[in-house]
Design a protein around this nucleic acid. Structure first.
Lengths: 186, 186
DNA sequence: AATACCATGTAATCCGTTACATGATTTA
DNA sequence: TAAATCATGTAACGGATTACATGGTATT
C-alpha cells in the first residue's frame, strides 16, 4: 500500500521539508493517525527521489554542509492526487492489546481487573487532556472557519481523536462500574 | 512483544485447539482487537511447542492421519499469567489511512470530500449493524450475568467495538454536515 | 562544559501479508 | 461430482522497530 510514501508526498506537497522536519511532523502533529521513525523516513525519501517523486537541494547549515530540502515533483503531485481520490475498503479493526487482555478477563481476580482498568483510565485521561489542550491552541491560533483554510484538516482529525478517547474512557468507566459492583465467588 | 504468542496461549488455555480452530477464532471472534492468518499461526505453534509452552497430540481424522490438538503446559500457563498481569504503557494510536486522507482535505474539492465521507459512512454503518447483530446473538445465547461467566470477556469487548463504531460514525456525520453546508470558493 | 536538539544515515530483526503448495472431508 | 470447508505447511516480500553509528549547533 505504501502509505508512508503518500504521507510524505502529502506533507512535502504542502511545503518543502527536510527528513528531520518530516519526522517532527509525524511524531507531533500526525501522531494520532500516522507516524514513522527517522530510520524509516530517510530510506523512503531516498526511494522517492529515485522514483522521481521528489527532488532535493542541499543547504549548508552553519559552517559544514548538511540538510536536504525536499520538494515534490509534478509526477509526485499526480501520484499523490491519484492516491487521495481513490476510495478504499475499510481497513481491519486496529489491534488492541488491552482489549485482548480484557477478553481473557476470567484469568484475573476482581482486584487485578480493577487495577488494569484504573491504570488504563489514568493514562487515557492524560492523553485526552493533552488532546484538548492541543485543540485549544489550534482554535486560538489558527483559522478553521472554512474548509479552504489549510488548517481545517488538522482541526477535523484532532476532533476525531478527542471523540475517540472520550468513547474509550466511557467504556472504561462502564467496565469499572460493572466490575466494582460485582462480587466474585471464589 | 510477541502478542500473537499470548493470544494463542490464552485461547489454548481456555480449551485445547488445532491451528485451524485458532484461525477461525481469531478471524471470527477476536477480529475486533486481534487477528492472524494461518501462515502466521502455524509457525508460531511450532515455535511455542519448541519453547515448551504447548504440546500437541496428533489425531487421525477419517482415514488418513492429520489434525494436531494443542494443549497448554504449566510453563505456558505461568508465562501467560505473567503477561496478562503486567500493566502496559499506552500503545501508540492506531494508524488510520482514512484520517490521513482527511488531513489532506485541502487537496480535494467539496464533491470529492463528500464522496469519501459518504463511502466511509456506508461501510461503517454496515459494520456497526453486524456488530449489533453479534451482540443480540451473544445476549440471547450466552450467560453474561456475572464476571465469572466465561463469556463475559466476549461481551465486554464487543460492547467496546460497538461504542467505537458509533463514535466514528458520529464524527463522520458531523464532518459531512460541516462540509455540505460549506460553499467552497474556487 | 554539558545537555538538548538538529541532522542523516545503515543493519539486524521482527511482525505480518501474499502467494505458493498440497490433500482430505463434507455438503449440495 | 463439484464446491465448500477442513487441515497444514513454506517462501518471498514488505513494513516497521531497535540498535548501531556519526557529527554539528544551540542552549544552559
Amino acid at each position: 500500500m505504501r502509505t508512508l510514501k503518500y504521507a510524505i508526498l502529502g506533507l512535502i506537497n504542502r511545503e518543502t521539508m527536510t527528513g528531520y522536519d518530516l519526522m517532527k511532523v509525524f511524531n507531533m502533529e500526525l501522531v494520532n493517525f500516522w507516524y514513522a521513525k527517522h530510520s524509516q523516513i530517510y530510506p523512503e525519501l531516498k526511494k522517492l527521489t529515485d522514483e522521481g517523486m521528489i527532488t532535493f537541494e542541499t543547504l549548508p547549515e552553519g559552517d559544514k554542509l548538511r540538510k536536504k530540502i525536499y520538494s515534490i515533483t509534478e509526477k509526485g503531485k499526480q501520484d499523490f492526487h491519484n492516491w487521495i481520490l481513490q476510495q478504499d475498503l475499510l481497513e481491519p479493526t486496529p489491534k488492541d492489546i488491552f482489549k485482548l487482555k480484557v477478553y481473557f478477563i476470567e484469568s484475573m481476580t476482581n482486584e487485578e481487573i480493577l487495577a488494569h482498568f484504573h491504570y488504563q483510565l489514568k493514562q487515557r485521561q492524560e492523553k485526552l487532556s493533552k488532546l484538548q489542550t492541543n485543540m485549544e491552541i489550534l482554535l486560538a491560533t489558527k483559522d478553521i472557519s472554512t474548509i479552504q483554510s489549510p488548517e481545517y484538516g488538522d482541526y477535523i482529525v484532532l476532533k476525531s481523536a478527542i471523540k475517540r478517547e472520550k468513547s474509550y474512557l466511557e467504556w472504561l468507566g462502564e467496565c469499572i462500574e460493572e466490575v466494582a459492583t460485582n462480587t466474585r465467588i471464589y
